[in-house]
Design a protein around this nucleic acid. Structure first.
Lengths: 335, 335
DNA sequence: CTGAAAGCGCTAACAC
DNA sequence: GTGTTAGCGCTTTCAG
C-alpha cells in the first residue's frame, strides 16, 4: 500500500486540502506551504492515486480501443495514430483485443463502460444485431472505424473509401488496355473489403461494358496463401487466361504473384496484378506492386479527433472518408 | 452520470449490500432477492462502476504496457501475445506508446503507477541511468522485454538470444563455404540488435579464423532503405566482393536484396543474404530469405506469465531467453 | 491562505 | 439472509 495524501499532509504539517492543491497546481497556496509539500513529495516519492481522483471526479482520462487483432499493419498503424492524438490530449488507451471473436466485442464494450472510459474507438469487422443493441445502450461516445454503419447506428464512422478506390484501380487497369480482369476477394460478412471492393470492381467493369466469367472470381480469406490458392484456381480453371488480376488486398496480391512466378509466368508481362493497401512489403517485392494507399495512421488520428470533439459535446454526423490514392509501380503492363 | 448501486437497491427494494452480492455472485442471497435484483439490473441496463470497486479493493486488474512504437511487427506481435495471456487471466491492458522518445518512458512509468496498474511490461530500447533510477523506486512488478538489464536492475527480463542466433546464422554461412561475409548493422545504443548481433557475427568469424575488412561493415538504422544503402556502399567500396551478407534484421536484408537485384546481381548465386527476424515478408520475397525466427508472440506470452507470477509473489530471477531457430530457405548458396 | 467535512460508488465486516 | 456502517484516497465546497 502506497503513501496517501493524508500521510503527506501530516509529514508536511498541513491539511490534505493543501496537499491536494499543490498536486493539482491550484491557487491559494502560500509559497511556503507549497515548497514544504513539494519537498515531502520529493523525499517520499509519493505518487497520487488516480483511481481515487477519477472516482471523485467521476471521469477518467482513458479511451477504450477495441481491435480485432493488434498485430496487423492496418490496425497497429491506426493505433499508432490514435496514440499520437490521444496522448497529446492527455488521454490514455485501454486496449482490448477481440482476437477476431466478434462475441468478445460485446463483452469489451461493456467492460470499457465499467471502466468508465471517456469514449470508445471501435474497429468493426462484422456488425450483428446484437452489436447494434449493445452499441445503442452503451451511452458513451463511440467512433467506429473500418465499417460504415452510420446509417443504422448513430455514431460517427471513419472509413476508407473502399468502393471508389477499388473502382478506380480497376478502371486504371482498363485504361491500360486490360479487358479480362480476374478478382480475388474475401468473404462478404466484411462489408468494406468483402462487399464494397467487389462492388467497385463490378461497377468498373460494367461501366466499360466488360464482364468477368465465373472462373475469374475467387473468394478466399485474408491470408497470403489464400491469394496463392486463388490465383492457382483461376489459372487452372480459365479457358482463356485473364490479362490482369485485381486482388482486394496486398497480401492476396502477394500470394498471387508468388504463384505466378512459381509457374513461370511473368508479372506484369503475362499477367498484371494490383492490390489495395500499400503495405510496406508492396514496394519491396519484385515487381513492385501497384496498389491503393490508404492512410491508416491518418484514419486513427482523424477518428481520435472526432472522438475528442464528441466527448466535448460536438458530435460529428455521418461518416468520414479518408483519402486514398493509386500508387503506380511496376506490376501493371500497358497493353 | 450513470446509475449507481444505491439506485438499483432502491428499485429492487433491497440494500446496497445485497445488490453488491448479486453483482459479485456472492453467497447468502435468497433466490428471490437475487432474481429481483437481476431483473432490475436487466431493465435499467445498470453497469457497475469499476473505479469505485478498484478504489475499495485497492487494486486494479490492469497491466501497463510501455512500447516504443506499436506499428512494428515485432512489437505488435508481442502485444498480441500479451493480450492473449492477460485477458485469459482477467487483466486489461493500459497501453502507452513512447514513440521512440526514451524520456517518455520515465513519464509513463510514473503514469502507470498513478493508475495503480498491477504490473508493467516494459519494452526497453535504450536504458539510461535515469531509467534505472525510476525503475528502482517504482515499487511495482515490472518485466522488461527486449533488453537484458537483469544484472543492473532487479527485474526479470525476457529477451531473444541475439548473440547466439547471430553467431549461428553466420556459422551457417561459413558451413556452406562462405569466407567473405559482409555485415549491415544498426547503432550500438541498441544493445540487443546493435551490439549483441554484431558480437555474434564477429565471434563466428573469429572462431573460424576469418576476418572482415572495414569496407564489409556498414552501420545504418532500422529502415529498409538503410539496407539498400548499406549494400550499395559495401559493393562500391569493396575491392573484392563478399560472397555473403549478414544483415542484422530482415528489413535490412530486404533492402540489400533490392539493391543487388537492381544492379543485376543474382541472389544467392552471386551473393548470399541472411537476415534475422523471420518477418512475414521474408518468405514471400524472391528468393525466400534464410533468416532466424524469433517468436515474438511467445516472448509476449512468456513475459506475461512471468509478470503474473511476479504479481502473485513468485518472482522469476534473471532473464529468460526465448528459443530461436534458423529458417533455411533460398537465399544462401552452398559454395 | 488553510482546514474540516462531506461524499464519489462500492465492498466487507459486523450485527441482527 | 439482509441491512448498517465504515471507510478506500481524493476533491471540493464552505467556514474561518
Amino acid at each position: 500500500m502506497g503513501l496517501t495524501i493524508k500521510e503527506i499532509a501530516k509529514l508536511a504539517g498541513v491539511s490534505k486540502s493543501t496537499v491536494s492543491r499543490v498536486i493539482n497546481d491550484a491557487e491559494h497556496v502560500s509559497d511556503k506551504s507549497r515548497k514544504k509539500v513539494q519537498q515531502v513529495i520529493e523525499e517520499t516519492g509519493y505518487i497520487p492515486n488516480s483511481i481515487a481522483k477519477d472516482l471523485k471526479k467521476n471521469s477518467t482520462n482513458s479511451i477504450g480501443v477495441i481491435v480485432p487483432r493488434i498485430n496487423t499493419s492496418t490496425v497497429s498503424s491506426a493505433v499508432e495514430g490514435i496514440s499520437n492524438i490521444m496522448y497529446d490530449n492527455g488521454y490514455n488507451l485501454l486496449l482490448t483485443n477481440t482476437r477476431l471473436d466478434t462475441a468478445e466485442e460485446i463483452k469489451y464494450l461493456e467492460l470499457l463502460k465499467e471502466k468508465r472510459v471517456s469514449g470508445i474507438l471501435f474497429f468493426a469487422t462484422e456488425v450483428t444485431p446484437k452489436h447494434l443493441e449493445t452499441l445503442k445502450k452503451i451511452d458513451l461516445p463511440v467512433v467506429v472505424l473500418g465499417q460504415d454503419i452510420s446509417d443504422i447506428v448513430d455514431f460517427p464512422c471513419v472509413i476508407h473509401d473502399d468502393f471508389n478506390s477499388a473502382k478506380d484501380i480497376v478502371k486504371y487497369l482498363i485504361k491500360y488496355g486490360h479487358q479480362r480482369i480476374a478478382y480475388i476477394g474475401v468473404p462478404e460478412y466484411d462489408i468494406a473489403v468483402g462487399q464494397l471492393r467487389k462492388k467497385g470492381y463490378k461497377e468498373a467493369l460494367a461501366e466499360n461494358n466488360l464482364e468477368a466469367p465465373e472462373e475469374y472470381l475467387y473468394k478466399g480469406d485474408f491470408s497470403i496463401s489464400s491469394g496463392y490458392k486463388g490465383m492457382k484456381e483461376i489459372i487452372e480453371n480459365s479457358q482463356e487466361l485473364p490479362t490482369a488480376l485485381f486482388a482486394v488486398t496486398d497480401s492476396l496480391a502477394l500470394g498471387a504473384i508468388k504463384y505466378l512466378k512459381e509457374q513461370g509466368y511473368q508479372v506484369p508481362e503475362d499477367i498484371s496484378v494490383v492490390g489495395i493497401g500499400n503495405s510496406e512489403i508492396s514496394s519491396w517485392i519484385t515487381p513492385e506492386l501497384t496498389t491503393i494507399d490508404y492512410d491508416h495512421l491518418k484514419a486513427g488520428e482523424e477518428a481520435s479527433k472526432i472522438l475528442l470533439d464528441y466527448i466535448d459535446g460536438n458530435k460529428f454526423k455521418g461518416r468520414l472518408l479518408i483519402d486514398y490514392h493509386i500508387v503506380e509501380r511496376e506490376s501493371v503492363k500497358k497493353i
